[in-house]
Lab assay of single mutants.
Amino acid sequence: MQYKLVINGKTLKGETTTKAVDAETAEKAFKQYANDNGVDGVWTYDDATKTFTVTE
């Protein structure tokens, strides 16, 4: 399945996608991506759209 990440950071904004077997695996990949880019915020997930959002 394909999952999307929407980033609403202080210095980084945008979107990225990943393919993963489940939401938990996608979340780990997205959190690593956010961490690598210095984004630390509040996470939400919408199962209907398979979209994670992180807001600083």
Results as ranks from 00 to 15, higher is better:
G9D: 03
M1S: 12
Q2K: 09
A29Y: 15
D40H: 14
F30V: 02
V54E: 00
T17K: 06
N37Y: 13
Y45K: 01
M1W: 13
W43N: 00
F52I: 02
D47Y: 08
K50C: 05
N8G: 04
V6H: 05
V54D: 00
T44W: 08
G9F: 12
N8A: 09
N37A: 13
G14E: 12
E56H: 06
G38I: 04
D36T: 09
D36R: 08
E56D: 08
E56G: 05
D40T: 14
F30T: 00
Y3H: 02
A34K: 01
L5E: 01
K50S: 06
T25H: 11
D22V: 03
V39E: 02
F52R: 00
D36E: 11
K19D: 11
A23I: 10
T25D: 09
T11D: 10
A29L: 14
K31S: 04
G14S: 13
A29Q: 13
E24R: 12
T51H: 03
F52T: 00
V6I: 13
K13Q: 11
D22G: 04
T17V: 10
F52C: 01
W43F: 04
V42L: 10
G14Y: 15
D22K: 04
A26P: 01
W43C: 02
D36F: 09
G9S: 11
A34E: 01
T44V: 10
V39C: 04
V54G: 00
N8H: 11
K19W: 15
G14N: 08
I7S: 02
Q2L: 15
T17N: 08
T17W: 15
N37R: 15
A20Y: 06
D46S: 06
T25V: 08
I7Q: 02
V39A: 04
E24M: 12
A26K: 00
K19V: 15
Q32A: 12
T11F: 14
A48N: 11
M1R: 10
D36V: 10
Q32H: 07
V21Y: 13
L12G: 08
M1G: 11
Y45H: 02
K31C: 05
N35A: 15
E27T: 04
T49C: 04
N8M: 13
F52L: 01
G38P: 02
A34T: 08
T17I: 10
T16Y: 15
K4T: 15
T51A: 03
A23N: 07
N37T: 07
N8P: 03
D46T: 05
D40G: 09
D46V: 05
T11G: 08
G41N: 01
A34S: 04
K19P: 05
Q32C: 06
V6Y: 08
V42H: 10
G9K: 05
T44S: 12
G41F: 03
V42Y: 09
T44M: 08
A20M: 04
D22W: 03
M1F: 14
T18C: 13
F30W: 02
L12F: 14
V21A: 12
E24K: 12
Y33W: 15
K10C: 12
G41H: 02
D47M: 09
W43R: 00
T18D: 03
K13V: 09
I7P: 01
K13N: 09
T16M: 15
T18M: 15
E15H: 10
A23F: 14
K19F: 15
G38L: 06
G41R: 01
V42F: 10
E24A: 12
G41W: 07
G14W: 15
K4C: 07
D46Q: 05
D22M: 04
Y45Q: 01
V21M: 13
E24Q: 13
T49G: 04
A29P: 02
V42Q: 09
T44R: 06
M1I: 15
D22I: 03
E27A: 12
K50Y: 11
Y3M: 02
T49K: 06
T11E: 09
D22P: 01
D46F: 04
Y45P: 00
T53E: 05
D47R: 08
N35M: 15
F30L: 05
G9L: 15
N35R: 15
G41I: 01
E24G: 10
K28G: 06
V54N: 01
N37Q: 13
A34V: 10
E15N: 07
E27Q: 11
V6L: 08
D36Q: 13
T25L: 07
V42A: 09
T18R: 07
K13I: 10
T18V: 15
V54P: 00
T16N: 06
T16L: 14
T51Q: 04
V6W: 05
Y33A: 03
A48M: 12
G14F: 14
G9V: 14
T44K: 06
N35L: 15
A26M: 01
V39W: 08
D47Q: 11
D47T: 08
K31N: 04
D47V: 10
K31M: 09
T18E: 05
K50L: 11
T11K: 12
T18Y: 13
D22R: 04
V21L: 13
T11R: 09
Q2W: 15
T49W: 04
K13S: 11
K50V: 04
K50I: 03
K10R: 14
K19G: 06
F30G: 00
T55E: 08
F52Y: 06
K4Q: 06
L5T: 01
T11S: 11
N8E: 09
T51C: 05
Q2A: 08
A20G: 04
T16H: 14
M1D: 15
D22N: 11
Y3K: 00
T18S: 05
T18Q: 07
L12T: 09
T44I: 08
K4R: 13
T55N: 06
G38V: 04
G14L: 15
V42K: 08
V6P: 00
D22F: 04
E15A: 08
M1E: 14
V21K: 14
K28A: 11
A23M: 13
V54A: 03
I7W: 09
G38R: 06
L5C: 07
D40I: 14
V21F: 12
E15R: 07
G41K: 01
N8Y: 13
G38H: 08
A26V: 03
T17L: 09
N35T: 13
G9C: 13
E27N: 05
K4F: 14
F30S: 00
T49S: 12
E56Y: 09
D46L: 04
W43K: 00
I7K: 01
T25F: 06
I7L: 09
E56T: 07
E27M: 13
L5W: 02
A48V: 11
G38D: 07
E27S: 09
A48Q: 10
A20Q: 05
W43Y: 02
D46Y: 04
G14D: 09
N35W: 14
A34W: 03
F30R: 00
N37K: 13
G9Y: 07
A20L: 03
Y33S: 02
D47K: 10
L5P: 01
D36N: 11
N8D: 10
T55G: 04
T25W: 06
I7D: 01
A48Y: 09
T16C: 13
K31P: 00
G9H: 08
T49N: 08
W43Q: 01
G38E: 07
G38W: 05
K10S: 10
V39D: 01
A34R: 01
V42P: 04
E15D: 05
L12W: 14
N35F: 15
E27R: 14
K4D: 03
D46P: 00
T55W: 10
V6K: 08
T55R: 05
A23V: 12
K19R: 14
Q32D: 07
A20C: 07
Y45I: 02
E27C: 13
F52E: 00
K19Y: 15
I7H: 03
T55Y: 09
A48C: 08
G38Y: 06
K4W: 13
E15L: 10
Q2F: 14
M1K: 11
K31L: 08
K10M: 12
T51M: 04
K28T: 08
G9M: 14
A29D: 07
Y33E: 03
T49E: 06
T49V: 06
E15P: 04
K13E: 05
E15S: 13
T18P: 02
